[in-house]
Each structure stands twice: as C-alpha cells, then as structure tokens.
Design a protein around this nucleic acid. Sequence first.
DNA 1: CCTCCACAGGAACTGATGGCGT
DNA 2: ACGCCATCAGTTCCTGTGGAGG
Length: 402
Amino acid sequence: MSVSDPIDRMLDAAESGKSIIKNRNILHFTYIPNIILHRDSEQEQVTQSLLPILKQSRPSNLLVYGKPGTGKTLVVKKVLSKIQERVEKSNFPIKLIYSNSKDETTLYGLLVSLGRQLNLTEKELPSTGLATSEVFKRLLNKIDEEKLNAIFVIDEIDYLAQLVAKTGKDILYQFTRANERLKQGSLTLVGISNDLTFKEKLDPRVISSLGEEEIVFTNYNVEQIKKILEERIHDSFIENSVEEPALNLCAALAGGEHGDARRAIDLIRVAGEIAERQQSDRVTIEHIREATQKIEENKEETSLKSYPLHEKLVIIAIMKANGSSTGEIYSSYKNLCKVVGRDELTQRRVTQMLSEIEMSGIISGRIIHQGIHGRTKKYKLTISSEMIKKSFKDELTLQDII
DNA sequence: CCTCCACAGGAACTGATGGCGT
DNA sequence: ACGCCATCAGTTCCTGTGGAGG
C-alpha cells in the first residue's frame, strides 16, 4: 500500500481523524424524535384543537401561521402522529395525510399526491387526464368507502391558494364543505401558512370554515435560537467542540433576520462539516463564516443550473451587458441565440423571464425613466460572473459563449 | 404644457402533450 | 375514435407611464 497515493492518504486521515459530529441526524431541522423546539404552548394549542378526534367527532379545521423555520410543520406533525398512535387500535382509524403545496406545481398534482397517500393506485387515480372535480370526487369516494377519518395537512397553503386563484377553481371551498358530502368518515383540514395576511385574500366562505381555529407561531428571538442550538449541539456534537463565540454568531446570523431556526441548524451543521474536513477539533467563528458563504453559493449554483436553456441564455446576456436595459439585453440575447443556433423568443417572453429571474434574486432590476427615451428596467447581476461561468461550463450548448 | 419614447406588464389565446371517459 | 380536460411555454395584442425635450 503506497503512502503517497492521495486517495489512501485521504482515507487514512478520515479513518484516524476524529469526527466531532457524533449524530448527524439531529442536525437536520426536520429531525422528529424528541425535537427540541421550545414550542410548548403552541403544542398545547394544536393538541387542544385536534382533541375532538379522540372523542370520535370531527375537530374544527385549523390554520397555523408562522414564518419559515418556526417549527410549525414539526409541531403539527408531532401532535398528529401522537394522536394517531393513540387511536391506532380503535376501530376509528385516522388517516394522516401530509402534503406540501410547493412540492407540487399544480393544483392537480397536489390532489393526486393526496390521493396517493389515501392508497389510490395509478389505475384508480391517474396522474393526468382527469378533470379536477373528478379527482376530488374520487378522493371523497375513497374516504367514504373506507369510512376513513382523514386529516389533510396542507403545508404552504397560501401557495395553493394562489394556484387555485389562477385557475378559478374553488377547491379550498370544496374541501371545507366536503363533510357535507360524506356519509361516513370525515375530513379535517389543517392548513399551514407562512403568510400572515394570506387569509384576507380568500373567499369569505372559505375563511369562516377554514379559520375555525387559528394558531400563530411567533418568530424565535436570538435567545431562543441559541437555546435550540445548544440543545441540538449537545446531542449531536461531541462535547466542547463548538466554541461559544461561534455559537453566538450562528444564533445572531439566523435570529437577526427572521428568527429562522432551520437556517441556524443548517448553518451549524455545515460549519461542523467544514471543521471536520479541515481536521479541526473545534468549530470556530471562521467556520461559521465559511458556512454562510458556502450555503449561499450552493443556493446560487443549484438555482442557476436548474434554469431552462433560454433563461440561461438570458442570464448570460445580462452578464455580457451588465447593468443594461431590457432592450440591450434582448439584442444581446438575440445574438447569443444566433451563435448557438436556436430560435429566439419574443421580447415579451424575455421580459417575463427577466422578472422571474429577478424574483429568484440572481439579478436585480430598477425601473428608470429617461424622458423622451422612454421607460426601461435596468438589470444588474447580484452574483459574480465567475459563479455563472462555473455553473454553466458543463453545458455543451453554452460552452462557446461564456 | 404637451408629446412621444421604450419599454412594463396584463389578458387572452395557441399548440403540444398526455391521458381520461364513452 | 372522438371529445374533453389540465398544464405549460410561448405568442399576440394591448394599455399604461414619468419625464426630457420641444
């Protein structure tokens, strides 16, 4: 065995090198067993409002609000799974169904994902081809047939409401009224929303039945985040491997903005991994700093890579003509299209793509009025052009133009 | 004070895809 | 075999607009 082989050297180091993280699972925010959240009163509230289930009556529908990383989903899931455990042996089965609206791009997709969890097969519920009302009917039939007591947990329900609004269908209303159509079984809706103002946008009929109970999760403050981190660190890192200043910085970074505990935990995990890779036996402030940067870059890179071809072309066009107006970007884009031999899209489409890209934060736009020279939006990159080149360099079609 | 630029951005539509029910 | 339904990327057509320059 040759000692100079770099692979061997790395493997040797990994084997002998001490690992400072002893349980990696705990360093994921969504780790469920014995979650430490400091959400006692909220847990009580959720339990309280779902209690009627144990008495075999339908509980009120429930709306849960809170910013990201406040643990709302975790609390709901935890309470429900405990309830489910209790009821399991009784002849009053509860079917727990969780779905995140953001995972599904369309209303149809969401309904299908709910259906799959009700054990509807591809045959009984095809993943395309049906009218939405038909899908809905099949969901209810299934619940009715099997006398299920279904609890639909719909995460990011504000997002769903948007989808619904676009198609003009009134699915949320149908959901809340479903019980009137069910002879046996029941349907309870638990909506989880990031947006506290989301309710105002709904149809009043939906509000009255969906908002029967409301629970608001407040943001964590820096103190609380620090506590949460301490507890998770205690369980997942070996002792004394995270320096106090590092912990403080981590809590401050995540807490300062929105009180996002998820970010805080991600941060400490990535920092831990960086520290391990550097064979350090402690996590320092420097590691936290590196971690923030790495997380940021990862986000940028994956979002860059996930764009379709024409969006990528537009991004390159912006890069080539940094800080310029829509018209200039468009002609730059047209040139690029010629080079790679693709048909160019209309300007209207490109403006739309620009505003979509702006939404993701990769570029920033500013409307300016130039009097007789009209109105434009000027776009600037908010990330480095190296990042773009790096992310796109694997793409064959783009290689000549970057 | 009016005009007119260079677009922004809404609405409605198209054509392809994919798969249903009858 | 045919009509229908939903979705998506893209197009066509459109109305709206702040202010420099006449």
